[in-house]
Computed example of a mutant assay.
Amino acid sequence: MLTIMRKNGVILAIFAAITTGLTAIIHEVTKPAIQAQKTLTKQNLLDQVLPSTLYNNNLQSSCYIVRNQELGDNTEHRLYIAKKNEKPVAVALETTASDGYSGNIKIIVGANFNGLIYGARVLEHHETPGLGDKIELRFSNWIHSFDNKKINKNHVSSFTVKKDGGDFDQFTGATITPRAVVNAIKHSTLYIQTLPKTISHLKKCNTNTTEE
């Protein structure tokens, strides 16, 4: 009986070793394809908020880390600097609307240093399905309301939802969500205008950060 148990144990150990080895091999073989897909997905998102005609550098390689309360919290946010012939011309900035109806709303904003917004997209949220989720492009074109809008510190009063006297539509039965997104994009765009003075001091993203 003991011999049979030992034999079965050896068989199980060999099987486990083979399975682990195969898993490791498959992981290594598929890793380049997975990374390529991540890179493609990230570039597609960046292209939605920054026209590729604006710049001629590798945008994903021009990734930096910023912290500022104007970005909704004090966590690290990724910033991609678009350059034309080595000169910074615009950025794509990941930001947070911390006052969403159901928690934080993660957003990416593309704008230049004069306050012109090229585009914005919602990256993550937990808003109410059928109401607050209209901030997502797959449910509504509302996020396109920010395309080609311009803002500066002397012209902010109209950069809010119509219920608050501004230019942006709210949703029927849901004002908190669009208000939070509008405010986050406003503060982020104003923050972007302050960046030219600090770009040379920004911290570069590390490899793990850019692959997330």
Rank of each mutant, 00 (worst) to 15 (best):
residue 7 K to Y: 14
residue 10 V to L: 15
residue 11 I to V: 10
residue 17 A to G: 08
residue 17 A to K: 06
residue 28 E to S: 12
residue 34 I to V: 12
residue 37 Q to G: 09
residue 38 K to Y: 12
residue 39 T to M: 14
residue 41 T to H: 15
residue 43 Q to G: 06
residue 43 Q to I: 09
residue 45 L to P: 08
residue 46 L to N: 03
residue 58 N to K: 08
residue 60 Q to I: 10
residue 62 S to V: 01
residue 63 C to E: 02
residue 63 C to T: 01
residue 65 I to R: 10
residue 66 V to L: 04
residue 69 Q to M: 11
residue 78 R to V: 10
residue 79 L to N: 02
residue 79 L to H: 03
residue 93 L to W: 03
residue 98 S to L: 09
residue 102 S to C: 13
residue 102 S to V: 09
residue 108 I to D: 04
residue 109 V to R: 06
residue 111 A to Q: 04
residue 116 L to F: 09
residue 124 E to H: 12
residue 125 H to Q: 11
residue 128 T to F: 02
residue 132 G to V: 04
residue 132 G to E: 06
residue 133 D to I: 08
residue 134 K to N: 14
residue 136 E to P: 12
residue 142 W to I: 09
residue 147 D to Y: 09
residue 148 N to C: 12
residue 149 K to C: 10
residue 151 I to P: 07
residue 153 K to M: 13
residue 156 V to W: 08
residue 163 K to N: 14
residue 164 D to L: 11
residue 166 G to R: 02
residue 178 P to V: 03
residue 180 A to M: 01
residue 183 N to K: 12
residue 183 N to F: 06
residue 185 I to G: 04
residue 186 K to S: 08
residue 189 T to I: 05
residue 190 L to T: 04
residue 192 I to A: 02
residue 194 T to N: 00
residue 194 T to W: 00
residue 196 P to R: 00
residue 196 P to N: 01
residue 196 P to V: 00
residue 199 I to G: 00
residue 206 N to P: 09
residue 209 T to E: 15
